[in-house]
């Protein structure tokens, strides 16, 4: 599916979607409230079929957390970047997509561990990399640790 077709199709799924075309991939901004149903639609719609979640991460901006999902489709070879802005900096919460892509299970645990975004409906949301009693989320920009060395 070409980029224009993709844009049109996405607008059908989610009327409030906004696009950013500066990057290599088409970037679509979703809103957190109906995020899960839209992601399900992306995965399940036969003409979209985004079955391959190859990268998932989050960015700590000054006023929000942005969750970034890199999706592609193995039959159609089109790719899409879905972004969700979470404006609650204190307690960011997003719906989990672990039920849609199995690989999201680990990826979301990693994001929870290092960024502190809680995922609703995740089957097993624990810290993945750090110890269970670690305080803070290291990839946040305001994270401070007495052991950090300034080079």
């Amino acid at each position: 599916m070409s980029r224009e077709e993709l844009k049109q199709r996405l607008s059908e799924i989610c009327p409030s979607v906004t696009f950013d075309e500066t990057g290599e991939f088409l970037m679509a901004f979703f809103t957190p409230d109906v995020f899960l149903t839209q992601m399900k639609e992306l995965r399940c719609a036969t003409d979209l079929n985004f079955d391959y979640l190859f990268c998932m991460t989050a960015i700590d901006w000054k006023d929000n957390f942005t969750a970034v999902y890199h999706l592609s489709s193995t039959p159609f070879r089109h790719a899409l970047v879905v972004k969700v802005k979470l404006t609650d900096k204190e307690n960011p919460v997003l719906d989990s997509v672990a039920g849609i892509w199995k690989g999201a299970n680990f990826l979301e645990r990693e994001v929870y561990d290092l960024m502190g975004i809680r995922f609703n409906g995740h089957p097993d949301l624990r810290r993945l990399i750090l110890e269970d009693d670690w305080i803070g989320h290291p990839l946040r920009k305001d994270y401070a640790d007495e052991n950090m060395i300034e080079l």
Binding site: D51, Y52, L53, F54, T74, W101, K102, G103, L107
Partner: peptide, 9 residues
């Protein structure tokens, strides 16, 4: 299906 879903490569 599992390989795709898990994001294997």
């Amino acid at each position: 299906e599992d390989a795709i879903s898990f994001g294997c490569s």
